[in-house]
């Protein structure tokens, strides 16, 4: 670990200014991921700008939806009655992540910005294009059980680890971003990017961009939503696959649907194709399966020292069927 400076700016504008002016600066939220990276030698910022006090940490009603302050703690969001009733998938996603102690620290904006847990990314003694551009991808040909089946590139096969982000993607959230140029909004589904030839960038945010708010729109269907995470142990494990889903069924026919997947791509994966197939069709296992299969038509699986990740295709299809069946059978 190398020495660094630590600053607590007076407000969001000065925070953004401090980081923008300083190429090796980083925002510090709850620190549940960044501090690990400092200790592991994955990143070497020489200035940490603490943003836990410069944005809201509250959850406000807004046009039938909610505005979640970037500094709100994950545990507070998950416990909020409005979140639990209007957006149950978000509460479930948050509670399925990490541990109680980590959720008490992790912030609303920090959670979606956490970085992949690809073991090669986290081990600075191995090649990784995300960590050291041009060094190669050690995951390819290595242990790939946790890696991507959609949207990967020859440069990077990592998955995005956040559960919260999968729910926000399904629930049509928007992030409010402050930069030196001013404020802008980004649809949540467009925040994260695929690795392509530049896996160093997880999101479309530029250096110095600060998420200030996460906006959840008014959404009746979101009340009928859930998040289901399949993992290797009952707690404290990242998703092998996960599904955030919302469903409206009228007279046995699906009238509206939201679907996003986690654990399978470099970003939370909004299943647009599957949604199109679901809408207007009977709420049956066959429909759910067809929709999931269509979304995964382009899946490319990896061999690996551990047997690879091909199992994720049938696993995700079966999980989608299971989750949608339950949503249709047990309206919330």
């Amino acid at each position: 670990m190398r020495p660094f400076d630590y600053r607590t700016p007076a407000n969001a504008v000065t925070a953004v200014q401090a980081v923008t002016e300083h190429p090796a600066a980083a925002f510090l939220g709850g620190g549940t991921n960044l501090l690990d990276h400092l200790k592991l030698g994955i990143t070497h910022p020489d200035l940490l700008v603490d943003v836990t006090s410069v944005t809201a940490d509250t959850i406000e009603d807004f046009q039938g939806g909610l505005l979640i302050g970037a500094a709100a703690r994950n545990s507070d969001i998950a416990a909020d009655y409005r979140v639990r009733t209007r957006y149950p998938a978000l509460a479930e996603a948050l509670l399925s992540g990490a541990s109680g102690q980590l959720r008490n620290m992790a912030t609303a904006a920090g959670n979606p910005l956490q970085r992949t847990r690809c073991p090669y990314f986290q081990d600075p003694t191995t090649p990784c294009n995300k960590r050291r551009p041009g060094s190669g991808c050690a995951a390819i040909g290595g242990f790939t059980r946790g890696h991507a089946i959609l949207g990967a590139s020859t440069h990077c096969v990592a998955t995005h680890p956040s559960d919260m982000a999968v729910a926000l993607t399904a629930l049509d959230a928007t992030v409010h971003v402050l930069s030196a140029q001013g404020e802008r909004t980004i649809p949540f589904a467009e925040l994260h990017r695929l690795p392509g030839a530049d896996p160093t960038r997880d999101t479309v945010l530029d250096h110095g961009d600060l998420i200030t708010l996460i906006e959840l729109p008014y959404s009746p269907i979101a009340r009928q939503s859930r998040y289901y995470k399949v993992r290797d142990r009952a707690s404290f494990a990242f998703a092998l696959v996960s599904v955030a889903a919302a469903l409206t069924v009228t007279d046995g026919v699906i009238s509206d649907a939201r679907l996003a997947f986690g654990g399978i791509a470099h970003k939370p994966w909004r299943a647009n194709r599957a949604e199109q197939i679901l809408i207007g069709e009977p709420a049956t296992d066959a429909t759910y399966r067809l929709a999931a299969e269509h979304e995964l038509a382009d899946a490319r699986t990896l061999d690996g020292l551990d047997g690879g990740n091909a199992f994720k295709v049938p696993l995700l299809i079966r999980t989608v069927v299971s989750v949608l069946r339950r949503l249709a059978e047990e309206p919330r």
Binding site: T126, A138, G142
Partner: peptide, 8 residues
């Protein structure tokens, strides 16, 4: 990982 020789 036998390519590197250590536990990742």
């Amino acid at each position: 990982d036998p390519r590197f020789g250590h536990v990742i």
